[in-house]
Design a protein around this nucleic acid. Structure first.
Lengths: 184, 184
DNA sequence: CAAATATGTTTTGACTCGATACTATTAAGC
DNA sequence: GCTTAATAGTATCGAGTCAAAACATATTTG
């Protein structure tokens, strides 16, 4: 059974990679670069740095730095220096980047394949895979990278929503993004 | 929902790739080489060729040829010329190769993460992912690569099991392996 | 038997990746 | 405060991936 699940995930990932490669051809984007771009479009302001991308993709920071340089040179992201900590640069997806993502991510044929399942089956699959991912990340000693809204540090008070880690106020849109500090 | 499933599969695959990379370090094996080796250990005699691996991994045959050369140089596979068609070489996993696979594939932490789910949840996940994979392969115009036993060409008669495509007799062990000609 | 097709290898160039070394900034220890 | 350690990030290098194209054999088709 482990073998079967392992096999299925690997094969789906291979197909996704193949389609991603084809879709990125127009801009000369490699699969890993598209993954980084996609991540940056879904994460919050605590998680849009080189190191967060590194952690998310499970690569080394030198490697990721290179991929980000390519994304920047193609005007798909821009760098913004952090106000309070001069070591940190935030990576923001540009309009061009978002347009590209909307057209290619997730890949069309994948979406088509998934929508052939019933809505219930789709959400069941997501729930089950989430649990495996969560277990796996815990076992491997990695950050969970979950949606802010579901984090244990997310505090709702009468004055609005606050992050318990940074004590900063959060907007409703903020809480729908992925955070690297996510904790259950 | 598509986005979520896409995300989950990518992230699981990234973690798997990372662990695979670590496990292959002892032999100096790259993730893609381990994938090829694993595939060869699970496929039948119609599907143990360079082209079948190519199709399975979704790469080009030149690329795959390189990876197989490495596996051969490390004595993990051996080449056997086909008797009837001299263009074809069959790739057999050696004893050493099988020992390596038993220790590393699927990766330990992944197995650990999966076994935290109930048996029923595990088999449900497998069923759902199989369906997505099958849909995806059809949409992308790829071979399904299923287990021989479940293939529509698999014919059970009084004299034993026969492959309807090649008209060759199959053993019970044969029918449990993966075939590139699999068809539902 | 010639032309087309199929299996597989080799080569080339662009790119990935980990490792290492490096810079700059911030935090910690005394 | 001042030194040391830790953190965020970049640059370089060598091994390896990958697609594309050219090539060599062997088989099938007409």
């Amino acid at each position: 059974m482990n073998d079967e699940l392992f096999n299925l995930i690997e094969r789906l990932a291979n197909l996704l990679r193949q389609e991603t490669r084809a879709e990125g051809l127009s801009l000369g984007l490699q699969p890993v670069q598209q993954e980084a771009l996609y991540y940056l479009s879904t994460c919050n302001r605590y998680s849009d740095t080189t190191l967060a991308v590194t952690e998310f993709l499970g690569l080394t920071k030198g490697t990721v730095s290179q991929s980000l340089k390519v994304l920047e040179s193609k005007k798909l992201i821009v760098r913004e220096k952090d106000k309070s900590d001069k070591r940190i640069t935030h990576l923001k997806v540009t309009e061009v980047g978002n347009i590209f993502l909307a057209e290619t991510c997730p890949p069309k044929k994948f979406t088509e394949a998934v929508t052939q399942l019933s809505g219930k089956d789709q959400s069941n699959t997501a729930t089950l895979l989430s649990e495996i991912l969560r277990n796996y990340q815990r076992t491997a000693g990695r950050n969970a990278f979950g949606v802010c809204r579901n984090c244990k540090f997310n505090q709702k008070s009468s004055e609005g929503i606050v992050c318990g880690l940074t004590q900063e106020p959060l907007s409703t849109e903020d809480t729908m993004l992925i955070c690297r500090e996510y904790c259950t």
